[in-house]
């Protein structure tokens, strides 16, 4: 079953092309890496999936439903089934590690018992149980990104979007984050990872879609790419 499908998706920012006739599908539990230089359209792709941007042409569907025509409630539901990791972490600075992760569950209406059991599990997964009461400013870049991953996966989303998650990390932390993403994928979550880092792509192995100037230049299941 296709969890995400792009069909001739086209997006402009003013006169500048962000995406041009992009078509591909993502299956349940799949791991896809998107590679391309800055401005290739990787972030736009994720913004379209989250319904943050409108399309100029074509369609972007979640489980067969066009995201651009979703109602506010449907869009919320779609976002709740999707986890998102950003390059700059985007943690809530005035909340502790625990609260940052719990917040995602609270916002979705989970009860306290569930939160109290799931948050430590997510923190265990990213190996951050010892930093539970720290604030984001007290953590290293790698630790902050691991908190962001925990927040994105704590409610067990069907799809995880990771937009340049290792862009601000040193190689050691970057590889650690990639390992965590692979581990999450093994648990059944479909992962869409964007990067311009060759070492990351080589480590992931698997399907890679290369974007060049907003177009799909290559879609290879064996991990070949152009960069």
């Amino acid at each position: 079953m296709d969890i995400i499908s792009f069909e001739k998706a086209t997006k402009y920012y003013g006169d500048a092309i962000a995406l041009q006739d992009v078509s591909f599908t993502v299956k349940d539990g799949e791991f896809i890496t998107f590679v391309g230089h800055s401005g290739a359209g990787k972030s736009t792709l994720f913004k379209l999936i989250l319904g943050e941007e409108d399309l100029y042409g074509g369609t972007v569907c979640r489980d067969g439903v066009d995201i651009t025509s979703m109602s506010e409630a449907e869009l919320l539901e779609h976002r709740r089934k999707t986890g998102m990791i950003f390059q700059n972490f985007r943690l809530l600075s005035r909340k502790t590690v625990y609260e940052n992760i719990a917040f995602a569950m609270e916002a979705l209406g989970y009860d306290e018992t569930q939160i109290e059991s799931d948050v430590p599990y997510a923190l265990e997964l990213v190996d951050l149980r010892h930093k539970v009461w720290s604030f984001p400013a007290e953590l290293s870049g790698g630790e902050q990104q691991r908190v962001a991953i925990a927040r994105a996966i704590v409610h067990q989303p069907e799809l995880l979007l990771a937009d340049e998650p290792v862009g601000n990390l040193d190689p050691v932390n970057a590889h650690e984050v990639v390992n965590i993403l692979k581990q999450i994928n093994k648990l059944g979550t479909a992962v869409m990872l964007s990067t311009h880092d060759r070492s990351v792509v080589d480590k992931v192995k698997g399907r890679v879609i290369t974007l060049v100037n907003g177009e799909v230049a290559m879609d290879d299941k064996k991990g070949k790419y152009i960069l």
């Binding site: 976002r79 999707t82 943690l91 916002a107 927040r151």
Partner: peptide
């Protein structure tokens, strides 16, 4: 504003 944006992307309702 950034915090608000993140909350929305997580899937929090506007009222929340």
């Amino acid at each position: 504003r950034e915090e608000i944006k993140v909350m929305r992307l997580i899937g929090a309702e506007d009222s929340y």
